[in-house]
Design a protein around this nucleic acid. Structure first.
Length: 256
DNA sequence: ATGGTCGGCAACCGA
């Protein structure tokens, strides 16, 4: 099965791109982040027409997560279990017997702020979430915009960017704390070379052209599932579209 | 490679 993750930066603004990408690629699972739409306004019809099922939770203007699948999406839950906040940042479901967790991790604004502390705490809560809801031996895939570049090779300029909220030792350790539950970075397992990015900042002129990017979007698989991974790639094709997102999809393929 | 652009939504916030 193929599992993909894509920060769409508004599912309505990017509707032709998302629908076109699903039609062309037909993955079993696509997780998206930053849908930026309230549930009543979610563009369901466009996905009905191409034979994709969906589950989503959003809010006005910010955040919002969704899962699309050709197959049944079962056991859907939003948020950190019973906690009311962040229901539009984390969701899970079961698809084809695989547990799928889709997250949009808080960006963190700046180090030394409450928002950054919240981001660090968010990873700690996530570790607890995996411990509580899943067994290390099962097939779990955790994907999303994690807002962390794990290694120096995952940012375009590791010297000047060191200390950024998405590239510093504290967030890297926070991510590592979740990984230690039993996850494998599937892209890094399949590709050892740096310079492969999933995000290019809109605010930096020509960032895409000069490949001034970051690897912030990830597909993490439990060891049992990661053993079955056969490919993992970043799909930059969507960049050819009109009005592309600042992120591109990442796709992982697992043998049955 | 050292800078600013988007999306949502109606003034700026968040990335």
């Amino acid at each position: 099965m193929r599992v993909a993750s894509f920060n769409v930066n508004s599912v309505r603004a990017r509707l032709p791109i998302v629908v076109g990408w699903l039609k062309e690629n037909r993955p079993e699972v696509l997780c998206v982040q930053e849908t930026k739409v309230q549930d009543v306004d979610f563009p369901c019809e466009a996905f009905d027409e191409i034979g994709y099922k969906y589950a989503f939770k959003g809010q006005k203007s910010y955040n919002g997560v969704a899962i699309f699948s050709k197959n049944e999406i079962e056991k859907v839950q939003f948020g950190f279990d019973d906690e009311p906040e962040d229901r539009s940042r984390i969701m899970r479901a079961e698809i084809n017997g695989v547990a799928v967790v889709n997250t949009y991790v808080p960006q963190g604004y700046m180090r030394g702020t409450e928002k950054f502390e919240y981001k660090l705490r968010w990873f700690e809560r996530l570790r607890g979430y995996f411990e509580k809801n899943f067994e290390v031996g099962e097939a779990v895939v955790w994907v999303g915009d994690l807002n962390v570049a794990p290694l120096a090779m995952d940012v375009y300029d590791p010297v000047s960017l060191l200390g950024h909220v998405c590239y510093n030792p504290e967030v890297q350790a926070a991510l590592e704390g979740v990984m230690e539950w039993g996850f494998v970075d599937v892209f890094r397992k399949q590709c050892k070379e740096g310079g492969h990015y999933t995000f290019w900042d809109y605010r930096m002129r020509n960032s895409y052209k000069v490949n001034a990017g970051w690897r912030l979007d990830h597909i993490m698989a439990s060891e049992k599932l990661a053993e079955k991974s056969s490919r993992c790639y970043i799909d930059k094709g969507v960049r050819e579209s009109e009005r592309p997102s600042d992120h591109v999809p990442i796709v992982a393929e697992f043998d049955r």
